[in-house]
Design a protein around this nucleic acid. Structure first.
Lengths: 248, 248
DNA sequence: CTGCATGTTGCAAATTATGCAACGACGATT
DNA sequence: AATCGTCGTTGCATAATTTGCAACATGCAG
């Protein structure tokens, strides 16, 4: 739609991976370096991009501010954070995530790192696979039926592990079960040896507005043990839902 | 330089202040709504912008990720954070800031909130006034002489309080004193009733790479009392400098 | 001093963005 | 129930913005 703009956005995304020189930027955009330079200058003028003394380009300080503002606008994050911390503690220091549905994807909007040596890879702002994570299942299961089908049609059932759900039919069954029992499971479907349980946060009309999950490596607790965390998980999501409804 | 791009950036900046409708965006850009719409769609396609079910536009999830990445690229932040926490505790729960010089401005890259009721306004990613904050003075005082003059020439000596430094001559004296004593003061020059002290973090060549400040409201501690925090402040900045040199 | 890598400028060509006007969808109001 | 108003969307002609080129400038290394 807007060529120069989408090129500029690609620059920002690429700089998110690390510093780049002008030529590197031009090469990866497949444009003349003049073009890349002018985009970079515009970005620099508004502090979206910064140039160091060695002429390398970095993400600029404006993105700190916007990133912070974006997070602040997810008011549910503030409501949820203390409950997430408590849940993480109750679960013995395991990783806890809060994710929200957004335009066909699930996005992590808050997390509590686990305190054990085994870290899992995730980051606030990155998308969670809809078909291979507990939060993804919870969020899709909570969509209105019409939208749900559209989303399912758009899922790429890419396997992450040997246990990843591989097709829409199996996925629909899992969604039905999720709705029925009020929580979802991820049995090493996204990362080998990591099991999760997730549950929804709801607003006053019962709509799912976010999902919380606890992730536990096999070596700490086997799959059945993780299921044992469901009561604490549900207590946390119910508390968040109550606070959320009360906060508005 | 690039019209459509700078318009799009202005959209992002504005959305940082809160949600907007298409017409509001078009009005503030002073362009036809068609134009605004196409920019918004491009931004939306890359998740820089998100549309809610009521057709309001918000900052999108990509900005979480980029904001996080931008922070992560300021490696000094990670090095400094534990020292900042300790300093804040030693200072009795006062606000502590870490700022870096960047393209003619000082930017807060980390902070520790104070634990008292009186909060001061600041936010990671926002610029700090060079002439009216302790970190601003420290960072400018540490620039190479040539660049320093260029920066001073560009400062708008806007008064924030009755005590704000009002001209370049007075500012140069303060910078000299800052270099001499190794720390700077802000005696209610930015916000009435808030005094700060700040000191530099240096790399292995002695260059100033960042500045740390402690901010204390008058009601907690008078100006002389704040000066008493200088030893702890210097201990913290020296520790950060040592860690920083060691980390590379 | 020469060569290589990097960033910058003037200019002509045309792709790309723009504004207009008309349309469609949705809600509120009467 | 009908109408009005608000808001977002699309097709199209205009032209303005962006693009690539080629030459120039600067800084560093051999």
């Amino acid at each position: 739609m807007s060529q120069s703009l989408s090129r500029a956005l690609r620059i920002l995304i690429e700089l998110g991976e690390g510093e780049r020189s002008l030529d590197q930027v031009a090469a990866s955009l497949e444009v003349h370096k003049t073009t890349a330079m002018r985009l970079l200058h515009t970005l620099e003028a508004d502090r979206f991009v910064r140039r160091d003394d060695r002429q390398r380009y970095h993400l600029g300080s404006r993105l700190f501010a916007l990133g912070g503002a974006a997070l602040a606008q997810h008011a549910i994050r503030d409501v949820a954070q203390p409950h997430l911390n408590r849940l993480a503690a109750e679960a013995g220091g395991q990783a806890v995530h809060l994710a929200a549905y957004e335009n066909g994807t699930a996005i992590y909007i808050a997390k509590v790192e686990n305190t054990h040596a085994v870290r899992m890879y995730s980051r606030v702002g990155l998308p969670a696979a809809l078909h291979a994570t507990a939060v993804g299942k919870v969020l899709v299961a909570g969509l209105p039926p019409g939208e749900q089908e559209a989303v399912i049609a758009g899922i790429d059932f890419r396997p992450f592990t040997s246990r990843t759900i591989a097709d829409a039919a199996a996925y629909r069954e899992v969604l039905a079960k999720t709705r029925e029992q009020g929580w979802a499971e991820d049995a090493a479907e996204h990362e080998d040896f990591i099991n999760c349980v997730g549950a929804p946060v709801r607003d006053e009309a019962g709509r799912v507005v976010a999902a919380v999950s606890v992730s536990v490596p096999d070596v700490i607790l086997p799959r059945e043990g993780v299921r044992g965390l469901v009561p604490q998980l549900l207590a946390a999501t119910e508390a968040i839902s109550a606070d959320w409804v009360g906060a508005r």
